[in-house]
């Protein structure tokens, strides 16, 4: 039995405390205005939350965990879904700065474009933006996979320590500034590269990683050959 909660976020509820709201709702369903329960055999304890409000709000869904799916109808502000774990979060719109900051696990999907520092310091999971991202996507990445389907702004992969950054379009200046580890895959052209990264040959493991990530993002993997790989010179 998968539980579906449609959450109406009133002005009294801080968007960052969505996890508290959901926990309270689960322990006391009568507090929810609308609680729909749908039955499925496959996932008996899964929880599917649909946020009908919260458009443009900062800090929405910070620290959410153990939810089957959370979907927001509209764009959201800064620090959306930061620090989430074991959640699949979908934003039907654009996101502000630092979306998916410190993400631990799960999947974040942005149907629109993202602001500054997309998925910065993410430790695990996968963050996808189907549009463009402004500067510093994947900044200080700590092991997560980040996919920007469109173009990325300046200093993509800034101070990355580990993880994967995939850019489907072009990148702005100073790609990989102060890069320390991980991989950057880019399909288009970078305005300028820093000396902290060096291009290397696209090998079979890279193709596998790329195809898996593209598949997870629901994208065609036919263009894998067009990607180039960048690593830290110390790793080569």
């Amino acid at each position: 039995m998968a539980r579906v909660i449609e959450l109406q976020i009133s002005d009294e509820v801080h968007p960052a405390r969505l996890q508290h709201v959901i926990q309270n709702a689960l322990s006391n369903p009568a507090t929810l205005e609308r609680l729909t329960i749908q039955t499925t055999q496959e996932e008996p304890d899964a929880l599917y939350a649909i946020l009908q409000a919260g458009q443009g709000k900062d800090h929405l869904g910070v620290g959410l965990k153990n939810l089957l799916k959370v979907e927001t109808m509209g764009s959201i502000g800064d620090y959306g879904f930061a620090g989430t774990s074991d959640c699949e979060c979908v934003v039907q719109g654009n996101v502000g700065d630092y979306f998916g900051h410190s993400q631990i696990s799960g999947t974040l999907l942005v149907m629109g474009s993202a602001g500054h520092g997309f998925a910065a310091m993410a430790q695990g999971g996968l963050s996808i933006v189907l549009g463009d991202s402004t500067d510093r996507p994947g900044a200080s990445l700590r092991g997560a996979a980040v996919l920007v389907r469109g173009s990325a702004g300046a200093q993509a992969g800034y101070r990355m320590r580990s993880g994967i950054l995939v850019i489907g379009g072009d990148a702005g200046p100073e790609l990989g500034a102060q890069f320390q580890g991980g991989r950057i895959y880019i399909r288009g052209q970078a305005e300028s590269l820093t000396s902290d990264i060096e291009e290397c040959r696209l090998r079979e493991p890279d193709r596998l990683i790329l195809s898996l990530l593209l598949m997870k993002a629901g994208l065609k993997a036919s263009a894998i050959k067009e990607f180039r790989v960048y690593r830290s010179p110390s790793e080569l």
Partner: peptide, 22 residues
């Protein structure tokens, strides 16, 4: 913070931390 660039963003980070607690 390596992912922040100015004071305004720092203040937003502090606001985030503040709002994370109930």
């Amino acid at each position: 913070p390596s992912d922040l660039t100015d004071i305004e963003k720092m203040s937003k980070r502090i606001e985030l931390l503040r709002s994370a607690s109930d």
